[in-house]
């Protein structure tokens, strides 16, 4: 992701907009920095990250925003649902993989952690601390198959993934409104990856 740092005034403005009365200690203008990046599957909203450097390791909170309203990424798909409601979500053959990378990175699922893999060889190298890899929205899995369902407007995606710590081939059903259903198909080994 290419991040654009917000200047001091915009950072202060953003803190003012996202600061909660209850947790005022989370961010202060002196020790915080804000940045933003584009999300290819959203028309005008951006992803914003506010980082507090006053304690180490640093602490960040992410939001989707149009500069007016900030939706906090709270581990559920609430902000994505808001994007659907406001007609912001744009899913097509080009944006579906970045969307899935984002979805798996930001939405906590009962089936555990899911990360689309470049290939099966990548599986042992990924751990929970590898933030950069987990946030790499442009990673295209080798041999990925994307099929558009012309009747529903949704997508079927067959791709290698780290599925609750195991490399699997998964079938992902994405509805037109961005709801994601992931079904493991088979375990991947270094030999049988396409």
């Amino acid at each position: 992701m290419i991040w654009y740092r917000l200047d001091r005034d915009k950072t202060i403005d953003m803190i003012g907009r996202v600061k909660s009365a209850a947790e005022a200690m989370l961010f202060t203008p002196v020790t915080s920095e804000a940045k933003c990046t584009r999300l290819p599957f959203l028309k005008s909203f951006l992803l914003y990250r506010l980082t507090n450097f006053s304690s180490l390791p640093t602490f960040s909170m992410d939001f989707i925003s149009n500069g007016e309203t900030f939706y906090y990424m709270d581990g559920a798909d609430t902000a994505i649902r808001q994007m659907v409601t406001s007609g912001e979500l744009e899913l097509n053959e080009e944006t579906i993989i970045p969307y899935l990378n984002f979805y798996y990175c930001y939405v906590r699922l009962p089936e555990g952690e899911i990360i689309l893999l470049k290939n099966a060889e990548e599986a042992p190298q990924i751990d929970l601390y590898d933030e950069d890899r987990r946030e790499a929205l442009d990673v295209i899995p080798e041999g990925v198959e994307i099929e558009r369902d012309s009747t529903t407007g949704g997508f079927l995606v067959l791709a290698p993934a780290l599925y609750d710590s195991s490399p699997m081939q998964v079938l992902i059903t994405v509805s037109k409104d961005g709801q994601v259903l992931t079904s493991p198909k088979r375990m991947l080994t270094l030999e049988n990856i396409q």
Binding site: M14, R17, A22, E23, R38, L39, F45, M61
Partner: peptide, 22 residues
């Protein structure tokens, strides 16, 4: 196209979050 350099809006009071409490 979403614009990373756009100014924040100024439509009234900032929509402060009441709490991030779980």
């Amino acid at each position: 196209m979403n614009d990373v350099f756009k100014e924040f809006g100024s439509s009234g009071a900032a929509p402060a979050v009441s709490s991030y409490g779980h």
